[in-house]
């Protein structure tokens, strides 16, 4: 059974040759017919599917469209054409702690961030101790978050995002959260989620990590699928071609 199906997805951006953000400018340019746009395809006719329980990697150079693809799958962006079918609850570990408010305390932010991730209030209440414990913030949990270090924020974000066993986990280079100790702990957590049957989409520039974790990989290049298949073959070819250039 496929939990993620991506069908012919294209993402077109209209790049204005100049930035127009005031009504006056817009009207003048419009009247003079000086509004020019350039089409730019961040993704072009992407199709693939991911089966339940699979660990699926996405590789490609910077600007290949990896992040755009993740954003489309997690529903932040709508594709220009094509369709996406996702069945199951997604935990996007793309941007940890999105929506943290500096003036609120750690506890208050757990509620806010948890609700943003789509948890119910009751659920968060029952898990709050577990979150605090995993984040190792201890007594700082009642301090306004603006006084946290970036590592503390990331730890809290990670702890909130991984508190439920998701059906689909999107991981975008976040295994590098916090210090070595926490990094190990977070890797362990992700591995345990994998064992419990979560489908995982994994984006990383570390080919070692990809080889270790993923069964299949899609290789994006310039917004198109260059190749899709078993990790070993693709990584080999990817290494050969990107390193030669």
């Amino acid at each position: 059974m496929n939990v993620i199906e991506v069908n012919n997805v294209s993402m077109k951006y209209r790049l204005a040759t100049e930035k127009v953000d005031s009504i006056k400018q817009y009207l003048i340019k419009k009247a003079k017919r000086e509004l020019h746009y350039e089409d730019f395809y961040a993704l072009n006719e992407i199709s693939f599917s991911v089966a339940k329980g699979e660990v699926f990697g996405i590789i490609g150079l910077n600007g290949a469209g990896k992040s755009t693809l993740l954003k489309i799958i997690s529903g932040i962006l709508k594709p220009t054409t094509g369709s996406i079918k996702v069945s199951g609850k997604i935990a996007p570990l793309i941007e940890l702690g999105a929506g943290f408010n500096g003036d609120l305390s750690g506890i208050e932010n757990i509620y806010l961030n948890g609700l943003i991730l789509g948890y119910s209030k009751k659920m968060i209440k029952s898990k709050i101790e577990e979150i605090v414990e995993f984040s190792e913030l201890g007594k700082f949990i009642h301090t306004p978050i603006k006084n946290y270090s970036s590592g503390m924020k990331a730890r809290l974000g990670f702890s909130i995002a991984t508190i439920v066993q998701p059906e689909i986990l999107i991981v975008d280079e976040v295994l590098s959260v916090g210090d070595i100790k926490f990094k190990e702990k977070s890797e362990k957590k992700i591995l345990s989620m994998m064992e419990q049957g979560a489908t995982i989409l994994f984006v990383s520039h570390s080919l070692g990590q990809i080889e270790k974790l993923c069964e299949r990989v899609v290789w994006l290049e310039g917004g198109r699928v260059r190749k899709i298949g078993h990790t070993k073959e693709i990584i080999e070819e990817y290494k050969k071609i990107t390193l030669n250039n």
Binding site: N101, D103, E108, Y111, G118
Partner: peptide
């Protein structure tokens, strides 16, 4: 319905921050 708790929390946050 799925996000209704968030809606209420956003309202509460605004009010809290206003008087903080």
């Amino acid at each position: 319905l799925k996000y209704k708790d968030l809606f209420l929390e956003l309202i509460r946050k605004d009010i809290n921050l206003k008087y903080k």
